[in-house]
């Protein structure tokens, strides 16, 4: 493999890793606050892409307006999802929550099939993102350069909000101890809605950027990325935002690099994430950046 191809693959890995990170953050934030694996998160990613698609194709909005509106709608959708599917089960055993999440995921996917149609759709081409950029002998789509930059910007903003604002402090308090947070007059419901809103917005951004790079939309497109990104979040340390980013990049890298250097194993590509997950769960369940949680009896 020559240098050019290697750099090419590196660029691909960086893009994929960023996309995975954006989605993984949503998982980790929701898990941190509710101890819930939001199975429907991958489908929210899909919705973000579809909303943008329809806003451009049917409503004929300029692309940047469509993007912002799509992100906003998806964010609201995530908040609504929490209200309907998870809030009523706040005091129930965690298994009920998980079942509701799985049900919600299937519901959204199949609603997508019914409403959007099962046949793949092509996202419109947007010149800003579609130009081929040449750097020496390496060729990348401009979007591949945008993605990591946007992701890192978003991450910086998010970390600032979480670590240095009052709302962020409330979010961290609720993740640590819900009841004690209530005693501080924190509106726990509002904090949870916020978390879902932010996570869903990030997933929507991920969805939109994803379709810029892989322009085929279908209602089931969120399943595999969703699962993989949850794995990324676990690998990085569930509940830890930086961990989610780390996990996302790691997973993206491994996926692209293995496919590039070990083409014989391509058939097993999807299994890698799972194998990695199981290894992490067995060796360091708290993840790469996570802390050990002891259970007090």
């Amino acid at each position: 493999m020559d240098l050019a191809t290697f750099l090419q693959q590196l660029a691909n890995a960086a893009s994929l890793g960023s996309l995975y990170s954006l989605i993984a953050i949503g998982y980790t934030m929701v898990y941190g606050i509710l101890r819930l694996i939001n199975f429907a998160h991958g489908d929210i990613f899909m919705l973000g892409a579809y909303f943008a698609f329809y806003l451009i194709a049917s409503v004929a909005l300029p692309w940047w307006v469509a993007f912002l509106v799509a992100i906003a709608i998806t964010s609201l959708f995530g908040i609504a999802l929490e209200r309907i599917a998870y809030r009523p089960l706040r005091d129930s055993p965690r298994i009920s929550l998980m079942i509701s999440a799985i049900g919600a995921s299937f519901l959204i996917e199949n609603l997508g099939v019914v409403i959007f149609g099962g046949r793949p759709k092509s996202f419109a081409s947007i010149p800003l993102f579609d130009t081929v950029v040449r750097m020496g002998s390496v060729q990348v789509l401009s979007v591949s350069l945008f993605i990591p930059v946007i992701t890192i910007l978003l991450l910086v903003v998010l970390l600032f909000v979480v670590n240095r604002t009052k709302t962020g402090m409330a979010m961290r308090a609720v993740s640590t101890d819900v009841e004690a947070a209530r005693l501080m007059a924190i509106d726990v419901n509002k904090v949870i809605s916020y978390t879902f809103g932010i996570g869903s917005a990030l997933a929507a951004i991920g969805g939109i950027l994803w379709t810029m790079k892989y322009p085929q939309l279908n209602p089931l497109m969120g399943i595999m990325p969703g699962l993989k990104c949850f794995i990324a979040a676990v690998i990085g340390g569930i509940g830890n935002i930086s961990g989610a980013v780390l996990g996302g990049f790691l997973l993206g890298f491994i996926e692209i690099m293995v496919a590039a250097f070990l083409p014989a194993l391509t058939g097993y590509r999807d299994a890698f994430s799972f194998i990695l997950l199981i290894l992490v769960l067995l060796l360091k369940p708290s993840g790469l950046l996570g802390k050990k949680q002891t259970v007090k009896v």
Partner: peptide, 11 residues
């Protein structure tokens, strides 16, 4: 709990 679910799903 949830980790078990995801691990078995993974397998």
């Amino acid at each position: 709990d949830d980790y078990l679910a995801i691990a078995t799903l993974g397998f």
